[in-house]
Measured scan of single mutants.
Amino acid sequence: EPLWIRPDAPSRCTWQLGRPASESPHHHTAPAKSPKILPDILKKIGDTPMVRINKIGKKFGLKCELLAKCEFFNAGGSVKDRISLRMIEDAERDGTLKPGDTIIEPTSGNTGIGLALAAAVRGYRCIIVMPEKMSSEKVDVLRALGAEIVRTPTNARFDSPESHVGVAWRLKNEIPNSHILDQYRNASNPLAHYDTTADEILQQCDGKLDMLVASVGTGGTITGIARKLKEKCPGCRIIGVDPEGSILAEPEELNQTEQTTYEVEGIGYDFIPTVLDRTVVDKWFKSNDEEAFTFARMLIAQEGLLCGGSAGSTVAVAVKAAQELQEGQRCVVILPDSVRNYMTKFLSDRWMLQKGFLKEEDLTEKKPWWWHLRVQELGLSAPLTVLPTITCGHTIEILREKGFDQAPVVDEAGVILGMVTLGNMLSSLLAGKVQPSDQVGKVIYKQFKQIRLTDTLGRLSHILEMDHFALVVHEQIQYHSTGKSSQRQMVFGVVTAIDLLNFVAAQERDQK
């Protein structure tokens, strides 16, 4: 057995438009009618409502009807409940999964919650491996369901041993009777949507819809739904939504950006999952974080739909894509998950301010006199920076000697690579993860907040409520011999709460 199987392995699926269902090699399930009293909570997966979006479509000038398939009504709160249950049931049916076995899954959280929910009911041990950027709410729900959680670096490539995929496979090879159901490759993922989600949409719309818009992560949702719609409703256009920084969209030119990270969760990847059939997507749109969270908040405030950030991405694209539809036509959007997962993220004004998705003037509360002053007023001194090749031991000596707790790590040209902190280095040394002679590049981390000289002290204040420091950066445009230009970030300084307090105190003292 291989040590790991690539999540982007070539698909062996034989589905073709027009091929009889009787030739399918898979076990198919028909939607079942729910009894009045459910035998367990797993029976509350599927049969989610279709809700008309009344205000947002009109606000953006849509002539067509805009409908939302509300997947956050599933038992675990997301569309991923469907595939989690289906993968477990299919693994039980073919004898792969037996009582007492362990389920391991690399996930952005929602599939993990679905699997942990099913594992709690069915009696399996469950280990979820997820990147650090995923919300604390997801972690809390997983723990409450009895799952064990392993976190991995957000910026690790999918084929790196440190990625959530790599760590999951390492655990599988170490733990007896453990299984990775593997949402990236498992046919049960798109089949769950082909058999149930798509049929529900067709039934709820009486077979009449002209466009379907869905955000894409593993691709199982859009693949399964689109294949069924292509068979039953061939005139329906399928629109895929991919965040900026991901590479799922086609044509490839759409993916060209210097951005590699994004805040919206559960969609987009740096590889093409095996289950994603991009041939059934008629057109791709890219979405960005700001519009995703703005539209998610709009869905909550104006439509009462308590959905997550990827739902915002989907609707932001839908109001663009559906401009081509006329009166009497219908566009369906998939709202994948609930706001429950993001209470401390985009639902929080403070978080939105820190990330730059909300401006101070958007909030009406009274601010102190210094709130709208610029960061450049602080008069920061030149920063202490270190090269990635310097040793951890030497870096600790320098920081202690100069009285700093942290320093930016830059390359020879001064471009920011990340940050090192005294606390992080000492804990890594004590844990045996690094040696004093190791290069400081081994303990770089990139989960820090950046701020510009033109940003306000109010925004800085919000950042420092949650973080010990902020890195002050400025952009530099560099022209190359080819005539092309590129933008790079340079370090201007490091600012802490002490710097802000000293500035405010000094100004008030001078005024007296």
Rank of each mutant, 00 (worst) to 15 (best):
Phe357Ser: 01
Lys355Ala: 07
His372Arg: 05
Glu327Arg: 14
Arg452Pro: 01
Thr496Pro: 13
Val332Asp: 01
Gln439Thr: 14
Val409Cys: 14
Phe404His: 05
Val494Asp: 01
Ala316Phe: 11
Tyr262Leu: 03
Val473Trp: 08
Gln478Met: 09
Cys331Asn: 04
Gln439His: 14
Lys449Cys: 14
Leu426His: 11
Glu397Tyr: 06
Tyr479Ala: 11
Leu471Cys: 15
Ala382Gln: 13
Leu429Ile: 14
Ile498Ser: 15
Met419Asp: 10
Trp369Tyr: 04
Gln302Met: 12
His372Asp: 14
Gly312Met: 04
Val241Leu: 01
His474Ile: 03
Leu387Asp: 09
Lys286Phe: 01
Ser427Gln: 03
Gly268Tyr: 04
Ile396Trp: 07
Asn424Arg: 15
Thr314Phe: 03
Leu335Phe: 07
Lys355Gly: 08
Asp455Arg: 01
Cys392Ser: 07
Gln439Ser: 07
Met490Thr: 01
Asp277Leu: 06
Asp362Asn: 01
Gln435Ala: 14
Leu305Tyr: 08
Glu377Tyr: 01
Gly240Ala: 13
Asp499Cys: 08
Val440Leu: 11
Glu290Arg: 01
Ala497Tyr: 09
Glu465Cys: 15
Gln487Asp: 14
Ile239Asp: 04
Leu378Val: 06
Gln354Arg: 07
Ser287Arg: 01
Phe295Cys: 11
Gly240His: 01
Val443Tyr: 13
Gly393Glu: 15
Leu457His: 01
Gln489Leu: 13
Leu248Tyr: 01
Glu263Ile: 05
Gln256Cys: 12
Met419Pro: 11
His474Trp: 05
Gly393Asn: 06
Val332Arg: 03
Glu265Tyr: 05
Leu305Cys: 07
Ser486Leu: 13
Val472Met: 12
Val386Phe: 10
Phe346His: 01
Ile444Leu: 10
Ala431Val: 11
Thr456Ser: 08
Gly328Glu: 07
Ala249Asn: 04
Arg330Cys: 12
Leu430Asn: 13
Ile239Ser: 04
Cys307Val: 01
Glu253Leu: 08
Thr294His: 15
Thr389Arg: 14
Ile416Glu: 03
Gly441Val: 07
Ile498Leu: 10
Val420Arg: 01
Gln476Trp: 01
Ile396Ser: 14
Leu248Val: 03
Gln487His: 14
Ile444Trp: 13
Thr260Met: 15
Leu430Ile: 12
Leu380Arg: 12
Gln487Cys: 10
Val491Leu: 12
Ser313Phe: 01
Ile239Lys: 06
Ile398Tyr: 11
Ser485Tyr: 10
Ile477Val: 10
Gly393Leu: 11
Gln406Trp: 05
Leu254Glu: 04
Gln326Trp: 08
Gly328Trp: 01
Ile398Gln: 06
Thr454Asp: 01
Thr454Glu: 09
Lys433Leu: 11
Cys331Tyr: 01
Tyr262Asp: 03
Asp277Phe: 04
Phe357Met: 01
Val317Cys: 09
Arg340Asp: 04
Ile477Gly: 06
Leu430Arg: 13
His462Met: 09
Val420Trp: 01
Leu422Trp: 06
Leu276Tyr: 01
Val375Ser: 08
Gln326Ser: 15
Ala301Lys: 05
Pro436Met: 08
Leu378Arg: 01
His462Asp: 11
Gly308Thr: 01
Phe448Leu: 11
Trp371Tyr: 15
Glu252Phe: 06
Gln435Leu: 12
Leu457Gly: 01
Val339Asp: 05
Gly441Phe: 11
Gly418Glu: 04
Glu263Arg: 04
Thr421Glu: 08
Arg452Ile: 06
Gln435Phe: 12
Phe285Ala: 14
Ala413Thr: 12
Thr496Asp: 05
Val504Pro: 01
Gln406Cys: 08
Ala407Met: 04
Leu387Glu: 13
Glu303Gly: 07
Glu244Pro: 10
Ser348Tyr: 05
Thr482Gly: 04
Lys442Val: 11
Met490Asp: 12
Ala292Asp: 07
Leu373Gly: 15
Asp289Pro: 01
Gln259Ser: 04
Gly483His: 11
Gln354Ile: 01
Val440Gln: 01
Leu426Gln: 07
Leu306Glu: 06
Glu265Asn: 01
Tyr479Lys: 15
Met298Phe: 04
Ile416Tyr: 14
Ala505Pro: 01
Lys286Pro: 01
Asp405Cys: 01
Arg459Asn: 10
Gln478Thr: 11
Val315Gly: 07
Val333Tyr: 06
Leu417Gln: 11
Gly393Thr: 15
Val491Met: 14
Glu324Gly: 08
Arg374Asn: 13
Trp369Gln: 05
Ile498Ala: 15
Leu387Trp: 14
Ala292Val: 08
Gly423Tyr: 01
Ala322Asp: 06
Thr421Asn: 01
Glu252Leu: 12
